[in-house]
Each structure stands twice: as structure tokens, then as C-alpha cells.
Amino acid sequence: MRTETPILAVRGLTTELATEIGWCRVVDDVSFVLYPGEVLGLVGESGCGKTMTALSILGLVPQPQARVTAGEVLFEGRDLLRLPERELRRVRGKEIAMIFQEPMTSLNPVFTVGDQIAETLRVHEGLSRRAARARALELLRLVGIPAPEERLDCYPHELSGGMRQRVTIAMALSCSPKVLLADEPTTALDVTIQAQILDLLERLQAELGLAVILITHDLGVVAEFARRVLVMYAGRIVEEGPVADIFAEPLHPYTQGLLASLPDPRAEIVRLEPIPGNVPVPGEIRRGCRFAPRCRFARSGCRDADPPLFRRDARAVACIRSPLAGAPGPGAEAAEATAPVMP
């Protein structure tokens, strides 16, 4: 267990989405911490609640169709969920910044990129027009945009996808945030451009000592970029731990299934072993473990109650069969007594 103080602590976060059948929990009692200067991967398939978790942290859930109904998000001693909108706005962008999959989500097509970066600086940092422009130029250089003087006066549509993502990174970093939420930052990009952007994020993260939550569906990206990882399924965190441990020995059958589903370009694979069934949609979730309907190890106990996250050292898993839960798992030694960590 780390003794450091987390920079961000999320506890019992619950977010609901309005659907045809009423309010459904899309983020369900999610708790985790983020330490200063670390890269935390948040991985899961579409609809698992990973993006909604990030949006909930920043108070950006789309209203009125979504609402945060419980939990707290502690950032530097303040609960962001209970902060008045005016104060929250000061945190957003300045202390905690976010970048999205599609750069055009955060770029305005009718302003030049220079003006857009400068605007952030003038609002949050109170810089003069001239100083803001000079800083914007510096930022474009920082994110590796060639000929930044010329790019400053470009409109977003004049840039390639990779360049646009560099601009949104420049904007996100303009006020020197402490935390960066990166939601699928490279998913829309080609693989050689993705490598450039990941390389850039990695360099900036180390240079600036940023704490990053990297949200992605790509286990490859997590393996190469994150140090610790949270695996989400149907609104819950099902596994947590250091990247090296999780990839070497995944404990949750879902994590195991995801890894067995991946065609690795570096290895000869005879047969992939897919997870049967479909990713559940909100509202479809039944009693008991959410993964049980697709789990080949499921037994009667799995359908009775939703398993808590059983924790030991740096690892945690929400599976009653896991050695961490005190039950013998596949090939596992008898586990020591572990207490479920639940509020």
C-alpha cells in the first residue's frame, strides 16, 4: 500500500442515465485514488462507464439525461461534486484538464488555434492579449507542432487529425494542470500518429509531473503507457492493480477474457478465445455479479450478490472465486485472510 497522499480520491461515485426503462446506473459505486505524477489506466469496453466516470469527476455529465447521485470526488481537500459551479469552473481547465477522442470536441471551428489557446490563458491566468499569444506559441512548440508561428493562425480544419490532437493537448496544458483526464486520446488516429501522440503524452507527463487518468479500450495502450490500471465492466471496477501484475496474472475472468481475445501482432496465435455473449447495455444488469452471465466459471454464489472489491496489497478484484476473496481460484494457493474494502 502506498503511503503517499492521493491528488484525487473518488469514493462511491454513482451516476445514472435516463433510458427508456427509467434511470439506470452507468457508474455504480466507483472508488479509486490517483497519486501525483502517476499514469492510471481506466480500461473497458463501450458502455462500461469509463467516460461517464471522467465526466462525473469534472461535473460535465450531460444534463438532464444524466445525473450524479452519490459519492465524492476529493481534490486537494475539496469535494468537487459539492462545489458551486463558479468554483468548479476554476478547477476545470486550470487544475484538472481533459482531452477527448475527437479533437474537434474541444476545438471551435471558427477560431484560429492561437486564439483558442490564448483565450484559455486570458480567462484562467489573466494574461494580456500579447502575453497569451506568446505563451500559445510556446505551447505549440512544446507539443511538437512544426512551424508553430504559422500554425497559430490556422483554423482547426486546416490541420491533420494528429496535429489537432496536439493542439488540444497544448490547450489542456496551457494552465499547467495537476491532473489530466485523457479520454481515448489516440483512438481516432492512425497507428503511426498514435505512436507520436503517446510518445508526446509520455514525455510531457514526465517533464511536467502530471497525474494522468488514461481512459481507453485498448489494452496495448494501457500496457505501454500506464503504471496502474482499473478495469471496468458494466459500471463497476472489477479489477485494479499494477499494470505488470495484471497483464502477467489477471485475476478477474473478464480481464482474463479480454486478454485472450486480443490478436497480438507480435505473436502467432492459433485460436483466440472470445468471451461469449454481448456487452450488457445499461438497464440489462441483473442481480449478482454483472459478468456472471458471460463467465465460464460462474457458479450459483455468483448470481446471489454483487461481489465487492477484495483487496490485497496493490491488487483488488471483484470476484468471489479469486484467491483474494479467500476462495481457491484456478491454480492459486490458499489465500490469506483478506477483508473486502467497502464503505
Binding site: 512544426p146 491533420s160 494528429g162 496535429m163 492512425d190 497507428v191 503511426t192 500518429i193 498514435q194 505512436a195 507520436q196 503517446l198 510518445d199 485498448d218 489494452l219 496495448g220 495502450v221 494501457v222 500496457a223 505501454e224 503507457f225 499494470v243 505488470a244 497483464f247 502477467a248 486478454l259 486480443l262 497480438d264 501482432p265 507480435r266
Partner: peptide, 24 residues
């Protein structure tokens, strides 16, 4: 070679990557 080295693979650890500069 660059394309193959650019694909993030689901195994942790550093490995050499050939970074192509610029856009196609």
C-alpha cells in the same frame, strides 16, 4: 517495420519504437 513497432502491444514494458515523423 515502423508500422509494426508502433502498435501498442498488450504486454507491459519498454521496447524500442520506430517513431515516424510528420503525417502521411
Amino acid at each position: 517495420q515502423a508500422l509494426l513497432s508502433a502498435v501498442p502491444i498488450p504486454r507491459p514494458g519498454r521496447r524500442p519504437r520506430i517513431l515516424l515523423e510528420g503525417d502521411p
